[in-house]
Nucleic acid binder design. Structure first.
Lengths: 180, 180
DNA sequence: CTAGGACATGTCCCTAGGGACATATCTGAG
DNA sequence: CTCAGATATGTCCCTAGGGACATGTCCTAG
């Protein structure tokens, strides 16, 4: 049930429509918390029904902007402070790595190179984003400061994975016993 | 559909029962790919129906050990080499970090300390595990060598997160403009 | 001999998420 | 004026996963 709180949190920064939220989810949160628009619209309707958000205004093209209510703000805060963090990490690349021994030497090589490139690219994108933030392009609000912290996690995580993929290429498939 | 291939991959190392596999999933893969036993038994039955695994033997207490078939081995290899890696990373801690600005100074402090401790502990457990592997406690088969690579990813990932949580505590809530 | 606990396999239901498909509205280019 | 494309909101269905509950089997301590 984190999508729910993700939406509430984003709305706590200011009113937005489902469309806006969908964009923010794919742009900012795409790699750490993917969410499709159908889910977002559905959840917004539920949240409105529970009084955690309300329709702020109706714009062109049936656009509905939502505003978070006091109850909504209270709910995010409750979630942030009272609900245990879910540390579940479901990383297919790591699951796959358990089975590297089933791959040919050069298939594995190629795989690890592609992985390293993928992670390095993402790390660089996040680094670039962080640099823009640090240059002040997004201002110095509390919200962007939190975003900066999130971005830093992205940089560190993807760098770690890129380094790991590089390192893995140096590991021999099976360590021969002493003096081979 | 990774549970499917996770099971096939584990069975490629040798025959095992659903119970064995469930244990391995919680012990080795608990933090990178959680799986409950009901799903495992269900999937094994499906795999058996498709001829990717077969019942090797029936033991005491209704125990059924499964063995992977040639078709099963081919399927894991196909997955490893031909199917695109799913890089989805759904990390609630990072989603939460976007909303740190909504938390009180000391609540956040406590939160980050707890997070750092949590990650540091896991990183240490993995490091310990890696050390045992490197001492040769698990032998030097290709399989344990791959496991070593997976463990290394765990170490690096959790260390990165622990460092991040430490670093986040040093970030001021909102950067005041020049000369405050 | 009996009861508790570990071993072992399953059913059932509910929610979350992925993805295809549908539709309405507005803008701007030609 | 018309049509392509962006904006904007939804429905529907299917699968994956979480978790409660149920059941059978064997061993061993008392």
């Amino acid at each position: 049930m984190s999508l729910r709180h993700g939406l509430l949190g984003l709305l706590a920064e200011g009113p937005a429509s489902g469309y806006d939220l969908a964009r923010r989810f794919t742009e900012v949160l795409g790699s750490v918390w993917p969410a499709q628009h159908p889910k977002i619209y559905a959840e917004l309707n539920k949240l409105a029904g529970e009084g955690l958000v309300e329709v702020e205004s109706e714009g062109p093209r049936r656009r509905k902007a939502y505003r978070i209510t006091d109850a909504g703000v209270a709910e995010v805060k409750r979630w942030l402070t009272e609900v245990d963090v879910d540390h579940t990490m479901r990383l297919q690349p790591l699951l796959r790595s358990l089975f590297f021994w089933m791959m040919d030497r050069d298939e594995l090589q190629q795989h690890l190179e592609a992985e390293a490139r993928y992670y390095r690219d993402l790390a660089e994108q996040y680094t670039e984003y962080a640099a823009r933030k640090d240059r002040g392009e997004f201002g110095y609000s509390e919200q962007t400061q939190s975003m900066r912290v999130t971005i830093e996690a992205g940089i560190r995580l993807y760098s770690a994975l890129a380094d790991w993929a590089d390192w893995a290429q140096t590991v021999p498939p099976a360590k021969p016993s002493k003096g081979s």
